[in-house]
Amino acid sequence: MTVAAEFQQVTQRFGDFTAVDAIDLTIPAGQLTTLLGPSGCGKTTSLRMLAGYSTPTSGRILIDGVDSTRTPPERRGLGMVFQSYALFPHLTVAENVGYGLKLRKMPAAERKRVVAETLDLVGLGHLAASRPRKLSGGQQQRVALARAIAIRPKLLLLDEPLSNLDARLRVHMRAELRRIQAETGLTVVLVTHDQDEALELSDQMVVMREGRILQQGAPVDVFPAPANRLVAEFLGYENFVTSADGTLRTVRPEHLNVVSEPTTAGLTLEGVVVDVAFRGVDRLVTVDADDGLGRTVRLTADVRDGAVTARPGDRILLSADQAHVVTLAG
């Protein structure tokens, strides 16, 4: 595995506040790494240090094996897509995309060709002469992407690139991003707070919280085995149950079933239905489990499943297969 960039014990403090706390992170070349975590966990701060817009309080950042901790952004050769896109309003789409090439003194004819190719890659060839203001959010986002890709960056950095788009476009653009990454072979670092986005896009996902990395790895490895409760919560696990021996276990709402008899294997819970919410493809049932902890558990049940006719006030028995019960370290 070739390493494109590396964080070594990188810390960023703002006054007394530690936004990023001694993180170690390796960005593999040619892969898509996502930084995932709740608002304020230090994702943007990390990305900005990688791009050179801010200098770490301590630690080192290597790009292509070279210590670049204090290299200004214009000498890093990275492509950044800002959450607000930051397009140049006084330039046309083609001029925006050609901006970095012009600075690199690329001859006009070649520049024109590269701009056209890049715009075609993002599907915007027909809008080359437009002003960014005239474009939709999704189109502006593609211009920002094209502008960053055109300079053949060592790394493509994306700060919540999809969060300003509507839900449908967002899902469509995930596929687009995957296609573009595959076609260009670029190393991509993408910041997101959307777990589905991270799971779908990443080769490597990095789960952050309060300036620290909680877990990192491929989605197929991280998702079924969250390292601790915080990661599990962030990945959509609910229903945390502490057994008599003190071990913490969790089940996702979609893996709890309504049963008529207790099962021996797996996890069984009994309780009173508090709320039933219809959600289209399924119902979300909230249950007050009566194990003396006053715990609320939630399950989803297929709407076509006639078995779930529970109403608030009913007592029900729930169980999950052993395969779906995740035991957490802490």
Binding site: Y53, P73, E74, A86, F88, L103, R104
Partner: peptide, 18 residues
């Protein structure tokens, strides 16, 4: 104006003056 346009320009290779 978008407060990040100058940073975007820097990232694309422009010196602060440029």
């Amino acid at each position: 104006a978008d407060p990040f346009v100058e940073e975007a320009a820097r990232g694309l290779g422009a010196s602060p003056l440029r």
